[in-house]
Structure formats: structure tokens, C-alpha cells
């Protein structure tokens, strides 16, 4: 038997092995956790769905079987894709404009506190107005146009952005603001270098609400006034007792909203300066 000197490369190999095993064990656990996190919700939803079908006794056009919904998604993919693109167009434009209006107003309110007193009540009133009333006015004014639908998405989406951004801009540490004042920093420097970075986690948090909400609101707007988009498909499918199509579109909308939420969350985590790995408690 060959004796290895202590500390030699080969001699240290057995000591390193458990670490490698531990790492691969960690990787395995992480993969299993990811699979469970994806599969478990799906299994739960499907289980509840089948239980509802079994116990409710409702007809198939009210509560179709999941496989029928999947079949509809595949068979009607051309129709659904066309209308999906229309919905996405409304949602994306509405989302961008919600941010322009929300962040713009928040900055305006910070720079001119009088503007907050003058405009905030109007913003709150608009936010709390029943959408049905707004839709009626918009349809009378602009008809079934993309502008009407985008306006509804913006009216629903700008408020969380405005409130969160305002809160974020106000969250800048007063001691840091004192530092900027003593250094005679300009308004723009203080805004871009201090207040905006402090507000960033708040703005990202608002995106999680507004981003996924834009799709849902766009569909609701289409449902009320449009002849295009997923909302229109739902409306038409209801009239034709096509529960499978309603469920297919609802399922697609939910997946889309979740993906938008996950994407915004992913980007937000990378942009945020808040505590991360390696930080002291």
C-alpha cells in the first residue's frame, strides 16, 4: 500500500469529495424545489377543477374539463393568437403610459408640492370612478378605438405607480439629503443620484401590480367595448355557450399576467440595491 504524504493533492481528495457531493446535493435539492414549485400549483389547480366538475354537477359549457380547454387552445390557436396580439398591444401601450403618467405626476408633486394639493384629489377621484361610467363616456367620445381601451388601462394602472413612486421619492434618508445640500448639489443631481435610486424598489413594486394588471384590465376593456382582443373572444364565447373558449382565454390571460409579474420581479431584483446575499444582518 502506498502512503500519501499528508496534505498532498491526492491525499486531500477524499476530504474534498464530501464538499462536491454536498454541492451536487444542493443542486439536486434546488432542482427538486423548482419542479415542486411549478408542478404543485398546477396539480392543485387541476385537482380542484376536477373536484368542482364532480361535485357541482354543472354542464360542460359552464365548467368544461381541463383537457377540453387544452384542446380548444390548440385548435383555436390561430384565432386566439390574432386577438392575443391585439390585447398585448393595448396592455403594453397602457402599461408604458401608466408609468409615464404615474412617475411624471409623482416627480411633479415632489418638485411642486402645490401640484399635489391641486391634482391629487382629481387623481383619487379618477381612480375611484366606476369603469363602466368611464367606458360609456370613452365609447361615446372615441368609439371602439385602441385609444379608448388604452385610456382605461392607464386609468387603472397609473395610480399604484403614482402612490408608490411618491412614497419612494419621500423615502430618501434625510441625512443623505443634508449631505447633498451641504455639497451644494443641484436639484437634478439630488433627484437622479439620491431620490430616484431610493424610489427604485418602490417603483419596481408598483410594476408588479401595474404590469400584470394591465393585461387583465385590457381584457376587461375589450370585453366591454371592443370587437377585437381576448376580452372580445370571452364575450363572444359566452354568447355562443363556448365555456371551453372562455376558460382557454382566461387560462392564457392568467399565464400571461403571471409571466409579466415574474419578469418584472426578476428585473426588479437585479435593479434593486436593497439587502442581498453577503450583507450583514
Amino acid at each position: 500500500m502506498i502512503e500519501m504524504p499528508p496534505g498532498s493533492a491526492v491525499g486531500t481528495a477524499p476530504a474534498a469529495a464530501p464538499e462536491i457531493e454536498e454541492r451536487s446535493g444542493d443542486g439536486g435539492r434546488r432542482a427538486l424545489s423548482l419542479v415542486l414549485r411549478v408542478i404543485m400549483p398546477l396539480v392543485s389547480i387541476l385537482a380542484l377543477w376536477y373536484l368542482a366538475i364532480y361535485f357541482s354537477g354543472l354542464p360542460a359549457f359552464v365548467i368544461p374539463r381541463p383537457e377540453r380547454v387544452l384542446e380548444t387552445l390548440v385548435n383555436d390557436r390561430s384565432l386566439i393568437t390574432t386577438h392575443l396580439l391585439s390585447t398585448l398591444q393595448v396592455a403594453v401601450i397602457g402599461f408604458i403610459l401608466s408609468n409615464v403618467v404615474g412617475i411624471g405626476l409623482a416627480v411633479l408633486f415632489m418638485a411642486f408640492p402645490l401640484g399635489r394639493q391641486l391634482l391629487m384629489p382629481a387623481a383619487i377621484t379618477l381612480r375611484n370612478m366606476p369603469y363602466v361610467a368611464l367606458v360609456t363616456v370613452l365609447v361615446l367620445a372615441f368609439g371602439d378605438s385602441i385609444g379608448s381601451k388604452v385610456t382605461i388601462v392607464v386609468l387603472a394602472g397609473f395610480f399604484p405607480v403614482l402612490v408608490n413612486t411618491s412614497r419612494g421619492l419621500q423615502s430618501a434618508d434625510p441625512v443623505v439629503l443634508d449631505r447633498m445640500r451641504v455639497l451644494n448639489a443641484s436639484w437634478w443631481e439630488t433627484f437622479t443620484q439620491v431620490q430616484l435610486p431610493y424610489a427604485l424598489p418602490f417603483i419596481v413594486s408598483a410594476q408588479e401590480i401595474t404590469g400584470s394588471g394591465s393585461i387583465i384590465v385590457a381584457i376587461a376593456a375589450e370585453w366591454m367595448i371592443s370587437s377585437t382582443g381576448l376580452g372580445y373572444i370571452i364575450n363572444r364565447a359566452m354568447q355562443q355557450y363556448r365555456g371551453d373558449q372562455v376558460y382557454a382565454v382566461a387560462f392564457l390571460a392568467a399565464i400571461l399576467s403571471f409571466l409579466v409579474y415574474a419578469l418584472v420581479h426578476f428585473i426588479g431584483e437585479r435593479l434593486s440595491w436593497q439587502a442581498g446575499p453577503g450583507d450583514r444582518p
Binding site: 434618508d173 441625512v175 443623505v176 443634508d178 449631505r179 445640500r181 451641504v182 455639497l183 451644494n184 443620484q193 439620491v194 435610486p197 440595491w273 436593497q274
Partner: peptide
């Protein structure tokens, strides 16, 4: 004095930028 950047101010609580 502020305008001419003559001042330095060390605060009791750190005024560092967290990011």
C-alpha cells in the same frame, strides 16, 4: 460657503448611499 463648496459636514448618522 455652501455654493463655493467650502463646507464639509460629518453627520452623526452615516450619510452614505446604500447602493
Amino acid at each position: 460657503a455652501r455654493r463655493t463648496r467650502l463646507l464639509g459636514f460629518v453627520s452623526q448618522r452615516p450619510a452614505v448611499l446604500p447602493w
